[in-house]
Nucleic acid binder design. Structure first.
Lengths: 192, 192
DNA sequence: TTTTTTTTGAAACAATCATTTTAGAATAAC
DNA sequence: GTTATTCTAAAATGATTGTTTCAAAAAAAA
């Protein structure tokens, strides 16, 4: 006995995510969002909620995409070291192609300290990436491609950190070659 | 034939910097600023300028402090490797003590892509840190404390990147031990 | 077809935003 | 002490903020 929602919710979330991604939470106005989502603010508040809830949905969507990507990478039958190297190379590609950096990193620095819910989502996302890398490195050690001198978990943490800095470097210097060289250096370092 | 400015400008900039540092550019209102600086907005606009100019002044102040710190570190008569290790340890302390992360990094992710002037200041700051590290690493190689296998510049870039990620890690995980272990790992890696 | 429920679009909302104006207070130079 | 100039405080500015209201439109159930 009622009308249906007209707009496609997941498409709208995708659009909102792109705006938040580019402008950050505080840099984005409700009008920016409703313009991109092509819906009225009343519809937004009816179905999704306020600005903060929408942001949570967007960040969640972003980390969901990442989780799926990691799962796909794990599913193949390649050697762990090969998956690892591929992951590093793809990370470099994403950094040097994209204009907006990584939404999760931007969110961590903008909201991490002040918004508990956002922080929790990002923390879980970070832990997932850590687990992915840790198990890969661990496997690569078993397969003899990485020396066993260091804790896999430590190397995983270290890569995740380094990777964040590559984003900053590319924002400031726009030097793709620099990022590539750091990637090669990292692979060289863990291999020896 | 006129009245003097009542407030201490550099103290006011310091206070403004602290607010921007914590809340970011878009998260800070003019009231936040004038409250912290304890001046009226008309005084602010008369002497310093608008919000954007004030921010530029704050970021510049921040990077000035950093430059002075680096100069001091270089001035001693210690071995380069020792200065380097000290720098890493101090970086870890700053990360795990502070609540707000690094203002330059936050600024890079919030403003870097959209504000040319801010970007330029941060770029110069980053290059300075790179030069500092590059010359230290180079000297440490001459002194036999670091193998000559890699380009000093590359290792410097790599450390600067990693260091950025430590901030993110600490925001999300608040795990000081994790940061310390990554620091030790880095020193171990460049030494071998 | 009518009823009932929900969504939608447009307008309205108060609050806050960055910025400016205005009038008076302060002080250096004369 | 007067004058000239600049500063400060408070209020006003119009624009924009996030959010809500309300009447009309839509459509599923009766």
């Amino acid at each position: 006995m009622a009308r249906n929602v007209e707009f496609n919710e997941s498409e709208a979330i995708q659009k909102a995510m792109e705006v938040f991604w580019e402008k950050g939470y505080n840099g984005t106005s409700l009008r920016d969002l409703t313009d991109a989502m092509k819906i009225n603010s009343s519809s937004l508040y009816n179905t999704i909620g306020d600005k903060n809830e929408l942001y949570i949905r967007c960040i969640t969507h972003y980390t969901d995409l990442r989780r799926k990507d990691l799962q796909q990478r794990m599913s193949g039958k390649k050697r762990a070291f090969e998956i690892l190297v591929e992951y590093v190379h793809d990370a470099i590609k994403v950094i040097t192609d994209g204009r907006n950096g990584c939404m999760a990193i931007k969110a961590a620095f903008e909201m991490g300290a002040n918004n508990g819910k956002v922080k929790q989502i990002l923390k879980t996302d970070s832990e997932l990436a850590d687990q992915f890398l840790t198990s890969l490195i661990s496997k690569a050690m078993q397969e003899g491609d990485i020396p066993r001198e260091e804790e896999p978990r430590l190397i995983a943490d270290f890569f995740n950190s380094t990777w964040t800095g590559w984003y900053e470097s590319y924002i400031l210097h726009k030097d793709a070659d620099k990022i590539r060289k750091m990637g090669e250096y990292f692979i060289r370092q863990i291999s020896k």
